[in-house]
Amino acid sequence: MKNQSTVLGIMGLLILLALWQIGSLILAQTMPLANMLAPAAALGSLKTLLLGGQLWEHIFASLQRVGVGLAFALLIGVPVGFALGLSRKTEQTASPAFQFLRMISPLSWMPVVVMLFGIGDAPIYFLLAFAAVWAIILNTAAGVKNINPQWLELGRSLSATQSEMLLKIMLPAVLGDILNGLRLAIGIVWVVLVPCEMLGVNEGLGYFILDTRDRLAYAELMAAIVLIGMIGWALDSMARSAAKFWQRN
């Protein structure tokens, strides 16, 4: 079954590659520059950029921003999720406001955060954390609500303190849900990252895309797009593997 899934996945990627090639050929009929968007040009440029080292500083800068944004989202989202899951009144009070805020695109806050924090990494950290925190809050709250009541009764019968109940019973019980929320948050953050890195920074994959556009280096632009997809796929795979590993154990 696993081999079949792998084969089907490879077939899907090959179909996507074929559609990419066909699309670039069609565009090239009216737009000669479209030849630079073709798979061969993009993948060749990606290889050159990686081997030449021009992309690594941008990759590391983007991954650092993602890591900091997710860390802030976890620091805020997990305690808030516990508060919502443990108290029905807290959930009823906070849910309308949270649903309202959750539906606002993080990118719409760009002018506000630039005014507050200036340009640089600080507004990017805010926007990424804002984008990621909702998935973590909702999954954590759902996990808390679904904790087996017998586990809690066992803890009380053993005279466990509140901190012991939280750290030794509740947190391990909801860690799988937190990891699932983190996986969703990674997907959201990685999508939001590129436009966020167009806020006046001088490194990162979003900045690199702007730079290639200004230089009319379209093969490098497509190479960066492919790389963004590959890194996002790798991050999602790692988060999914971590969640599955925890559920098995």
Rank of each mutant, 00 (worst) to 15 (best):
I26Q: 14
G181M: 00
E153V: 03
W190M: 03
A41D: 02
Q247A: 15
P96L: 04
M1C: 08
Y125A: 01
A71R: 02
L27E: 05
N139Y: 04
K244D: 14
R240C: 04
A34K: 04
A83C: 12
A129Q: 01
L116D: 07
P123E: 05
A135Y: 10
L227Y: 01
F126G: 04
T6H: 11
I22F: 14
L70N: 01
S157G: 11
L19D: 07
A185D: 00
R240Y: 10
A131N: 02
R183W: 05
G176K: 09
P32W: 12
F100D: 12
L116T: 14
A224D: 01
A141Y: 02
A243T: 10
L84K: 02
M165G: 04
V68T: 06
P195Y: 08
G44Q: 06
S24L: 08
G44E: 04
D236N: 14
L116P: 04
A71K: 05
I136G: 00
A83V: 10
L175G: 07
F208A: 08
N202A: 13
L86F: 14
E203A: 14
V112W: 07
N148R: 12
D211E: 09
F82A: 07
L25G: 13
L16I: 12
M1S: 14
S62H: 03
A42V: 06
L175P: 03
L205G: 03
K168W: 08
K145R: 13
I147Y: 08
I147P: 10
L210R: 09
V113D: 02
R215E: 14
S237K: 11
Y207A: 00
P39L: 04
M238G: 12
L17R: 09
A223W: 00
G200Q: 04
A219N: 15
S157P: 07
L182W: 02
